[in-house]
Each structure stands twice: as C-alpha cells, then as structure tokens.
C-alpha cells in the first residue's frame, strides 16, 4: 500500500509538472459548461437539478479520460523509465494500481472543480443535494471504469496515439452497450447477448446514480469492472514490459 501511494504521488505530480493537467482541466470544464448550459437547456428546463450536467459527463469522459491514460504506460515504455520503475523493489501490481489511483485522483480533482455548477443550481433553486452527491459518486465511478480500460490498453503499446484510439473505441463500446443501436441489433441476432450487453453497460449503471439511487449491485459492478481491467493491465505489463 505504501509503495502504491508513492507511485501514485509521483505520477500525480507528473501531471501538474507538465501542461497536461491545466489543459485537461480547462477543456473538461469548458466542455461541461457548454454542454450543460447550451445543449442541456439548463436554464430553460426550469428544474433545480444537475441532470443535464450528469447526462453529458460520461461522454466527455469518454473523450478525455483516454487522453490521460494514453501516456500512463506507453510513455514509460517510450522513455525506458518502465525499466527503472519495475526494477525498483515494488511489485507490478503496486505500480499498476499506483498509476491508476493517480489518474483517478486527477479525475476527482477535475470533477471537484465543477463545484460552480452546484453553487449555481443551489443559488437558483432548492435542488436535492443528495441526488447531486450520488451523481458525482457515479461520475467518479464512470471515470474509474474508463481509466482502467485506458490504462490496460496503454500498457499494450508504445504508441500513445494507438493507446488513445483503442481506449476511446473500447470505452465507447461499454458506454453504448445499453443503447437501442446495440441492443436492437443484438436482440434480432443473438437475443441472450442483448441482456448481457445491457447489464455490462457503463452508461446504464450510471443512470441509477443520477437519480439518487446507490445500489450495492452497481457498486459491485464498478468494483469488479475496474478490478478486471487492472488485472488485465498487470498481465499486459508483465508480458510486454520488455518488448
């Protein structure tokens, strides 16, 4: 645990030592602002909630989270620092989890900086702040799910562009798995898979959180989702670290 935190702290420091952090946070906030206020009809709806905000969060993460994860391992391999990191007295699991936690903490910081939305909606009306809180929890879990995918795929390549495109594609697959475009197609061809796809969908699981429902089932889903991809990440690092 101690080593994991040391790796995480170094990694997180790395974001803020480069323009990555500032660019990411500014773009994230700007996108969320435009989408919520303009496309989401935040004011015209005349409802004191953050539903428009949370509706767009998974899609913004879909695009931006792979931009954080693409460098996680690909960059280490390109620089050769992976050889340094993995010959220090830490296990590969500690390195994988440490890097993931750093990226997750970074997403949490970006999410926390959306607090003006909460202030706005509280100023304009009397929203259910409990629902807003669960919405944030859900958003953080969606970020974690996408990060774990991106991190694992980043370990598979030295090329950051490939890592980014692969991660967007796979995250997209898990995001739209519950959408009619996928389920309709599946129920016509392989009906059993349609139900599986719906249950595996990140967007579907996120819906509950935006309505203020935190079910143990959804928590377990996200925990095992992240766990699976991080395990895969460790396996990929083990097999491909020296390539």
């Amino acid at each position: 645990m101690r080593n994991t935190m040391i790796v995480a702290r170094r990694e997180l420091g790395g974001y803020f030592a480069t323009p990555v952090a500032v660019v990411f946070i500014v773009i994230f906030l700007a996108l969320q602002g435009v989408l919520t206020f303009n496309m989401g009809n935040f004011f015209d709806r005349n409802q004191a909630d953050l539903a428009p905000f949370f509706n767009f969060v998974p899609w913004v993460f879909l695009l931006l989270v792979p931009a954080i994860t693409m460098r996680l391992w690909a960059e280490e391999r390109r620089l050769g620092t992976i050889e340094l990191l993995l010959t220090l007295p830490i296990t590969q699991g500690q390195a994988v989890v440490g890097k993931f936690l750093a990226a997750w903490a970074f997403c949490a910081i970006a999410l926390a900086l959306t607090f003006p939305f909460v202030l706005t909606v509280n100023y304009l009306g009397n929203p259910d702040n409990g629902v807003i809180a669960t919405g944030y929890l859900g958003a953080l879990l969606v970020a974690g799910a996408f990060l774990s995918i991106g991190s694992a795929l980043s370990a598979a390549t030295k090329n950051q562009v490939i890592a980014f495109v692969l991660a967007v594609a796979v995250c997209f697959l898990f995001a739209v798995a519950s959408y009619p475009v996928v389920t309709d197609f599946l129920s016509k061809t392989v009906p059993t898979l349609a139900e599986v796809a719906r249950r595996l969908s990140v967007a579907e699981r996120f819906q509950g959180f935006t309505r203020g429902v935190v079910s143990l089932r959804d928590i377990i889903y996200f925990a095992s989702f992240i766990g699976f991809w991080l395990y895969l990440n460790t396996v990929i690092v083990e097999h491909r670290k020296a390539d």
Partner: peptide, 19 residues
C-alpha cells in the same frame, strides 16, 4: 527482495524528464 539488494542502472539511464 532481490531488487532491494540491487542497484541497477538501466541502458540509457532512463529518468522521469519533468522531475
């Protein structure tokens, strides 16, 4: 345990550039 007793300089002496 083996790596704890080892000082290793990898080929090309990689380090984190921004640190």
């Amino acid at each position: 345990a083996a790596r704890r007793t080892l000082g290793f300089l990898p080929e090309g002496a990689p380090t984190y550039p921004e640190m």
